[in-house]
């Protein structure tokens, strides 16, 4: 059973037609021009010598939500994992080019991926809470980084993180219960709280709503909208409607190329490239 009669735009499985997207864009906040959080210079990723990304050049603004869209296998998830060096954990993966975070090369010799990942949090496609209590899930990050010397500090961090992730009211009476006992949407917000707890600057989201039902998706999008005030957010999504709703900048990837990157409004209303237009109108992809 689908959740009853929600606006079908929020149903990820359906592609909206252009008219509705444009209508929606009218209410979307305009992108602000700010300085770049990330500067990508000629970024390439190889899997076992095969090139998956072809020289991406792109600046990610330090506030707001940047969406990465494109058909399956276009390299958008691969690109996302460049920012917190998660590609390092894949055997035979190699990253070339330069990614500057606040003007510092994150692949430089003096950067430890462990600390980088504390600054750049990540939320995955499938909610992956640890098979531990809700409290321990959120407390794990602060614990390993030694952020909370006292138990009361840890309690504060957990509470604040859960509040910021919009989950506190739902779980405050059962912090000892397993994180895996929550519903899919709650799990995904728990994972966000877990990421927030280590005070990152950036949150990467890899199709965070693809396993959620429309109502949970709506809640998650609301949360992303709030979080963008404090964090730089990069989101990979299959749903163009979602990209249109939550992001200020959108990058369209196709076959390992960055085809077009612009303000979300421009991408959805006035795409310059034919491939972008074909994709967002549902003719390809």
């Amino acid at each position: 059973m689908k959740a009853a009669s929600t606006n079908y735009i929020s149903d990820l499985r359906l592609k909206p037609n252009m008219g509705e997207v444009i209508e929606m864009m009218a209410s979307a906040p305009a992108a602000e021009t700010t300085q770049a959080k990330f500067e990508c210079r000629n970024v390439e990723v190889f899997y076992s010598g095969k090139r998956a990304l072809h020289g991406i050049n792109m600046d990610v603004p330090d506030s707001g939500v940047t969406a990465l869209i494109g058909p399956s296998g276009c390299g958008k998830s691969t690109f996302l994992r460049v920012f917190n060096r998660m590609n390092d954990t894949i055997p035979n993966a190699r990253v070339a080019g330069q990614i500057l975070m606040d003007r510092q090369d994150i692949y430089g010799k003096d950067i430890d991926p462990v600390l980088l990942r504390a600054r750049v949090g990540m939320v995955f496609q499938k909610p992956n809470p640890f098979p531990k209590s809700i409290y321990d899930n959120v407390a794990y990050g602060p614990r390993i980084h030694g952020l909370a010397p006292r138990k009361s500090d840890l309690d504060t961090i957990v509470e604040k993180s859960l509040m910021r992730a919009g989950l506190w009211d739902e779980v405050k009476d059962r912090l000892k219960e397993a994180g895996t006992s929550l519903s899919g949407g709650q799990q995904q917000r728990l994972v966000i709280a877990r990421a927030i707890a280590v005070s990152p600057e950036v949150i990467l989201m890899d199709e965070p709503a693809s396993a959620l039902d429309p109502i949970a998706t709506a809640k998650l999008e609301e949360l992303i909208d709030e979080l963008k005030e404090k964090y730089c957010i990069l989101i990979v999504t299959h749903s163009m409607a979602q990209a249109a709703r939550v992001s200020q900048k959108t990058a369209f990837f196709h076959l390992g190329d960055l085809v077009e990157y612009d303000d979300t409004q421009t991408i959805f209303t006035n795409p310059k490239d034919q491939r972008t237009q074909d994709y967002i109108t549902g003719r390809t992809g």
Binding site: V114, R117, A118, G121, M122, N128, F130, Y140, I144
Partner: peptide, 16 residues
Amino acid sequence: VSPSIIDGALSLGASH
């Protein structure tokens, strides 16, 4: 063990 759990830990800045 599901690799997603390990990804989750790594993404929080846990060492391998």
